[in-house]
Design a protein around this nucleic acid. Structure first.
Length: 258
DNA sequence: ATGACTCGACTATCGAGA
């Protein structure tokens, strides 16, 4: 089974590229972020036409998360938020979607952008990461053999080498953000993609020729519990998806399971 | 070339992205 994650930056604008990606790679489950639409606006028919079903969670033109999965799979125990997922200004945004495929619990996650070190969104971001780690830890304590994958746009660059010029960044690289990210490793999750595919970015800003200059960031991750990490046979970061017509500013990350 | 932001709200500009 192959699982992928991709911040598509509008699924309606990216419909052709996303369906072409699924046809090319034949991944079984694609977790998407920033779909930027409500469920009734999602181009479901285009995915059904190539043999995929859709679950989506979107409230408006902001954020939004979804799964495309092969039509012969079942999506079980669907959740549109995790336990005690924080709100921003009394709104629980569409930033998390959980579903179980063939016994693998997958969460499609779009972690809030902190915007600035002193911006209220930074506290929101840190709480989001803290609560996600805490609830995942509780689940793994109850059953250490669970196969869990937390995948998506974490909006954190854990290593200095995950940004092209550290001096240009305040957010994404700050100590509180990196501490919040490292909590996932402390509760037993592993970034196996890092080991298999080092030194490749997952995001390049549209501005200032960032992609031709390779001025990128590594902020999209697939974190797996031990039982699932053991099943990862290979991984890829689909850098070529940043090329060509109407690309997202992020590229897909893919794992292949035994 | 991988090339100088893009998206979706709305119709002219703006919030948001990171």
């Amino acid at each position: 089974m192959q699982i992928a994650t991709w911040n598509v930056n509008s699924v309606r604008a990216r419909q052709e590229r996303v369906t072409a990606f699924l046809q090319r790679t034949n991944v079984d489950v694609l977790a998407m972020q920033e779909i930027k639409c409500k469920p009734e606006q999602f181009p479901v028919e285009a995915f059904e036409a190539i043999g995929y079903k859709i679950i989506s969670h979107g409230l408006n033109q902001w954020n939004g998360v979804a799964f495309a999965y092969k039509q012969d799979l079942e999506a079980e125990d669907i959740e549109t938020s995790f336990d005690q997922q924080p709100e921003f200004k009394d709104v629980q945004e569409a930033r998390a979607l959980g579903a179980t495929f063939n016994g693998v619990r997958v969460w499609s996650l779009y972690v809030p952008n902190g915007r600035g070190l002193d911006d209220p969104h930074m506290q929101y971001k840190l709480e989001f990461l803290d609560r996600l780690a805490a609830t995942t830890a509780e689940q793994l304590e109850m059953d250490p053999e669970l196969e869990i994958a937390l995948v998506g746009d974490f909006n954190v660059a854990p290593l200095d080498s995950d940004v092209y010029d550290l001096s240009l960044f305040e957010t994404h690289v700050s100590e509180p953000e990196r501490d919040a990210f490292s909590a996932f490793e402390q509760i037993g999750l592993t970034d196996k993609v890092r080991e298999l595919v080092p030194d490749i970015y997952t995001y390049w800003d549209y501005k200032d020729l960032c992609f031709p200059k390779n001025n990128g960031m590594r902020i999209d991750f697939m974190l797996t519990s031990d039982a699932l990490t053991e099943r990862i046979e290979s991984a890829s970061i689909e850098r070529d998806e940043r090329k060509g017509e109407l690309p997202s500013d992020h590229v897909p990350v893919v794992i292949s399971l035994s």
